[in-house]
Design a protein around this nucleic acid. Sequence first.
DNA 1: ATTAGCACTCAATATCTCGGACTGCTAATA
DNA 2: TATTAGCAGTCCGAGATATTGAGTGCTAAT
Lengths: 339, 339
Amino acid sequence: MLDERKKKILKEIVDEYIDTAEPVSSAAIVEKYESNISSATVRNDMAELEKLGYLEKTHISSGRVPSAKGYRLYVDELLKYDNISLEEIKYIQEKLENKANGIEELTKIATTTLSEITHYTTVSIGPKASQQLIEEIKFVLLGSRMLMGIIVTDTGLVKETIIKFDEDIEEEQVETLNYFFNNKLKGEPIEKIDTSLEKYIIRELKYSINIIRPIIEQMKKLIEEEKIYLEGANKSFELPEFKSLELAKNFVNILDTKELMRDILNTGFAEDIQIYIGDENENKELKDFSIVTFKHSVGDKELGTIGIIGPKRMNYSKVISVMKYISKKLDDNFKEDNK
Amino acid sequence: MLDERKKKILKEIVDEYIDTAEPVSSAAIVEKYESNISSATVRNDMAELEKLGYLEKTHISSGRVPSAKGYRLYVDELLKYDNISLEEIKYIQEKLENKANGIEELTKIATTTLSEITHYTTVSIGPKASQQLIEEIKFVLLGSRMLMGIIVTDTGLVKETIIKFDEDIEEEQVETLNYFFNNKLKGEPIEKIDTSLEKYIIRELKYSINIIRPIIEQMKKLIEEEKIYLEGANKSFELPEFKSLELAKNFVNILDTKELMRDILNTGFAEDIQIYIGDENENKELKDFSIVTFKHSVGDKELGTIGIIGPKRMNYSKVISVMKYISKKLDDNFKEDNK
DNA sequence: ATTAGCACTCAATATCTCGGACTGCTAATA
DNA sequence: TATTAGCAGTCCGAGATATTGAGTGCTAAT
C-alpha cells in the first residue's frame, strides 16, 4: 500500500507542516522536495495517504495536515534521531557536568537545559523516594525544640525535613533515635516508615507520643512529596497554534493543574522515551498537544522524569534527539558518581 | 473640585467596572446606585471627573473607564478594607495554624491560600537569608563523601545544602568543622560566609582546600538563592481582559521571567501593603496590570514577600482585605512560635 | 502510471449597512 | 445656580454580501 514514494511524501508533508504550521499543498511539495514529478501525481498520492488515515484536510479544498496516525508513522519509521549539533552536545555536557548537586537539582538543570535547546515547555518530577531503600537516617538537633530528619537512600537521594516539637529534646534522645532508626531501617524500603513503626517505637523506646508522632508524620510527608518543576511556559506562546485563545487557555490550565502533570509524568516505563501524540493521550484535555517524556532511572528506581509538552506539530526529531542525549548523560553522570 | 457626590459616583463607576469589565454608562449608574438624580446630572459629573483625569473614554461615545489616577484615588480614599467574610477568616486560620513547617513552607501555604480566596494569580519569594544572623551551623556526615550543611538563623529560618567531596571525610573532621564554624560565626550576619572566610579557615585548620572550597561554595549558593513560588496562573485566564491575545501573552511572559518577578517582589518596604496600578509600575511590561504585595518581616528582616498580579480592574477591596488579614496571621504565627 | 488543465470549493478579507448604546449640548425648569 | 428632558451626533459591532485566490479532484490525453 505504502510504497517508498508515498512514505517519502508523507515525511515531506510532516516536515513542511512542522516548519510552517500551514496546511501543505501539493504544489509546495513539488517545489521544495519533488521537482521531478508533477503536482497532480503528488495530489494522487496525498489522496491515497488520506484514505489510509495518515493525512487530514481542514476543509474540502485545503492542503493536508498530518493526522495523529500520520505523526505516529513519521515518528516511528520515518525519522532518524541524530538531530543534534556539536554545539548543543557541548552545551549539555557543560550544564550537566557539575556534580556538586543532588539528584533533584540535577533533574532541574536537565529540565532547564532541555527547554533552552528545544525552545519548548519542559516539565519534570523528582525522584520517587517510595521506591528506594534506606541507606542511612540521621536526626540533627537544631536549637532545643527542632530536629532535622535526613534520609539517604541507596541511589544517593537525600531527603530532609524539619520537625518541630512542643517540648525540649535532649541530645541523648537524638542519639538514641539515630541508633534506633538506623538499626531498624537500614536496607529497608523507605515505605516502612509508617504508623505501625510509630507504635513499635513507642513500645520499645518508651518515648512520649509527642516526640514520635511529629517525626513519623513529617517523614511520611517527605516520602510522598513529588516536586514538579516547570520551565519555559512562555516559549509555547510564541507558537502560531497558540493564536487560538481556546488552545492557549487549555495549555495554561494543563500546566497549572499539578495532579495532571503528575499523571502525565508518572505513566510510561523506564528506559524508553515515551511519545504521546494528540488523542493518544488518555486525558482529553491533552488531545491537541503532544508529550514526550523519559525517565532517568537505575534499575527499577526512578530518579526523575522529564517531559516536553507542546503542540502536536512538534519538532519530534530535535526533541527526541536531544532527549536521548540528555538521558544518556544523566546515566553516565550517575554511574560515575557511584563507581 | 471633588464634592462628595462626585466622589461617590467615581467609586460607583470603579465598582461597576470591576464587576462588569465594561465601560460604565451614566444610565447604568442611575439605575444601580443613584435613583434620585437623572442620567444627565451623572453625565455632567462624569465629564468633570474625566477633565480631572480620573476617568477615560475608550471612544467618543462610549461609557467611562477608570484611569490609573482614578484607581489610585479609589484605592487610597474611597475604599474600606474589611471585605472579608467569617468563612474566609476561618479558612485562613485553618490553613496557617499548622506550625510543623518552616518559614518557607508557611509562605507557600499563605500564597496558595491567598490565590484560593481571591481567585487571582499569586506569587511569592522566600526569606532573604542574607539579612539574617547565624544562630547555629551544623555539618552532618552522610556516607563518607557527602556532608549536609545546615544553617539556622535568628528568625528561625533553616537552610540546608548537600556538599559532595572527592575524598573521604572523617567524623572527627566534621566535629572540628562544627566547633570551628559555630565558634567563629554564631551571632554574625550570614554574609560572613565568603571567600575571605575560606582563606582564614584554611590557614587556621590546615584542612585541604578540596574540603573547604566546596563547603564555602555551596553555603554561598544557599544564601543567594531566592525561591519563587507561583500559584493560580490559570485563574487569570478566565478574566475577560485576557481575551486579548496580546495581553495574555504578556502575562505569561511576566510570570515566566523570574528576574522580573524577583524585581517586583523585592521593591517596596516592609510592614505596608504596596499597590502598583498599571503604569505606576516602573517596568513597562506591567503597564496593563496591577500588583499588590506585602512583606512578612520581623524588624528589618524579610521572611517572605507575597504578591497578587492581575488586571488593573482588580477587586482591590477584596484583595487588600484578605492580604491584611493574612499578613496579621503570619505575624501572630511567628510571634507565637518564638515566644 | 503520469500529467495538463479546468471546474469547483471554501477560507479569508474587504466593504457596506444598520441598529443601538452612549455622550454632549441646549433650552427649559426648580 | 443646579438639575433635567430631549435630541442630535458619534461610533462600535454584528450581519450581510461580494471578491479573491489557494487548493483540490477529476477527466482526458500522453
